[in-house]
Design a protein around this nucleic acid. Sequence first.
DNA 1: GGCTCCATGTAAGTTGTTACATGATTCA
DNA 2: TGAATCATGTAACAACTTACATGGAGCC
Lengths: 207, 207
Amino acid sequence: MALSHAILVSLVDRPHSGYDLAKRFDQTVGFFWPVSHQQIYQELHKLARVGWLRSQMVEQSERPNRIVYELTDDGRHALDAWLAEPTDPPSFKEEMLVKLFALAPGNQPALLAELERRRAMHVARLARYESIMAEHYPEPARLQARRRGRYLGLRMGILNERTTIAWCEEAIACLHAAPADAADAAEVASTTALASPRARTPDARHD
Amino acid sequence: MALSHAILVSLVDRPHSGYDLAKRFDQTVGFFWPVSHQQIYQELHKLARVGWLRSQMVEQSERPNRIVYELTDDGRHALDAWLAEPTDPPSFKEEMLVKLFALAPGNQPALLAELERRRAMHVARLARYESIMAEHYPEPARLQARRRGRYLGLRMGILNERTTIAWCEEAIACLHAAPADAADAAEVASTTALASPRARTPDARHD
DNA sequence: GGCTCCATGTAAGTTGTTACATGATTCA
DNA sequence: TGAATCATGTAACAACTTACATGGAGCC
């Protein structure tokens, strides 16, 4: 549905080859939307067949030839039409939540380990995003219109990572808390599971 | 990959029919993971074929017969093995970000309207989640071990909605901000000429 | 000699979506 | 009369993944 449009968007400014697009995706959209090179090549063929792109072979010596694609007028119109359509909210499939639905005494240590692993992963990602932010958008208040889309993409990445980290920490604390089942009901009242001290990330403010 | 496991998880406690599962999914996992009934029926057939489930026809008068599925020992083992495996982080495909990459003076009003629409949608969702939370988990500190997975799922839903709303508001403000290029074209031209950032940051598409 | 980069693809498979189909019962 | 609920499915398609394939250039 949207991969084709993501390609159209990438070709608005200037023509690109499939290889270029794959690399570009890795550095931009790919952070939150992984796309394989096979998908891109197939989609390019399809879009050319439909008439939204035209292709041109660029012969190279000493290197494989490139096939460069550019938008047609039809493609431009299709893109504009799509931009005006309502956007689907992202469907968010988090495997970890499915696993937590199966929470039981037997698998609790495994799930805890997994939560720790995920937390570390998101901390690393956040650091990567924040360094990109510091380097490329030191002053977000004054930003050329054309760069705002990219800025907002990165910004969402950062907000999401912070939220996920905060959630991992909550979840870890929650699993560590003494069980409230029959026997230990009284003991739990004193430990207050979810109110345990944990690092508050600056933007995880709503909790 | 994970739909089959989500079904196994749902059958841990007791047997269910495909219809039951579809309804259950709508109320739990379905909030963050929409699954169609066709998918469930197909997956049930597959899991029965593989031997992780066994099925039993329940004849009913005045109603269509039901086919009830329950876990086999093989299924139970497969589930335990899956729980111990590392979890993929969710791939997060947000169409809105793709659209924002195409931000230009011509489509700016359409994108703003879309951001407003999305914001309202997430506000409504958040309200729904919070009312469920208030009704079912009024005291999260003392929670039976078995209910913690569901609680954490809902909790992540709430955190995500809050984050998305905050982002929508940022994005709306960002697009409303006075453009830094039309009037300041000369300034921009001189900065890019002086700085030439591409030479130093070859892998940076964020500029 | 093995590695990565450049640049393109095919083929087979799995997963997910959309549309269509049945047929009785209950409620407004 | 029309719609919703119960309960199951088939068929066709679109989207995505995984594996395989080529072949020169330059690097350590």
